[in-house]
Amino acid sequence: MSLTYLEAIREAQARALRDDPRVFIYGQDVGAFGGAFKATKNLAVEFPGRVIDSPISEDAMVGMAVGAAIEGMRPIVEMQFADFSLVGFNQIVNQAATLYWRTNVPCPITVRLPFGGTSGSGPFHSQSIEAIYAHYPGLIVLTPATVEDAYSMLLEAVALDDPVIFCEHKFLYYHLKAEKLPDEALPVGKARIAREGRDLTIATYSAMVHEAIEAAKELSGDGWEIEVVDLRSVKPLDTDTIVASVARTGKLLCVGEAWPWGGVTAEIISRVTAEGFGLLDAPPQRLNAKETPVPYHPNLWAAHRPTARSVAAAARNLLRQ
């Protein structure tokens, strides 16, 4: 049996519903229809009354989840696309993220964001907005890059006592496959060395992990050994693992699919230069999407986001220094 990243997300939700009567799912078309991507396929039948179609009201969807969490439930909110979570942004960052600090009452909600670019999706169904959420105190922001992590991290998200923004990459939904679901996993907050190397560290997350690994394979043909760090969670950020990798390689390239201004890649460079300046043999570099909305046409889209080719080119530039 093999299963996809998307199926792993469905299985994690099924298990959460099975194991914990406090869990329910709320989102647009998640009920009988099974969700726009089918991440909740058949769950409404398996768990009657616990997988609920919501009106197209992202603000009220999150507000509802916060109220239910106050009352001891563990809601999972599915945003149809990450882009639409911005309509519920206020409830996420001002209601959910402040509740524990203001009142000592935890807010265990999981907001699932199908995010990131896919060919033909255009400006409003492609955004990578993890950094905006990571900016706010009170939120945990997860960005699984593998089928196994999609499963284990979603289960951990639901179990955590804090609001979790679960960024699941749509490009990985059908692409990635695993033989089976994991029995054990790294905990949230720990990064993973996705590929070992000695010449340069690429720190990245989500779909870009796979572009980075492709690039590393290409460069190994030229004799370069690239280490790829999969962040897994962008908040908290496992700075120790990144700094330890840079201590081995002396060079850092940060890759993100989000826009270049600020964001996760900038945060990593800021931390590594502050904590490990002496470890760096060359100025750290970063590679992001272009500074425009995400384009529709496949040719434009492929040039807008970092790809294995552009990652390899950026790595070569840095290796030459």
Binding site: G63, M64, V66, G67, A68, E71, M73, N94, Q95
Partner: peptide, 20 residues
């Protein structure tokens, strides 16, 4: 919270939880 209108759906959530 200061943001006007934001508390109503939170009440809804508590009421939904009680239904569960």
């Amino acid at each position: 919270i200061s943001h006007l209108g934001a508390m109503i759906s939170v009440v809804n959530g508590i009421l939904l939880a009680r239904r569960f």
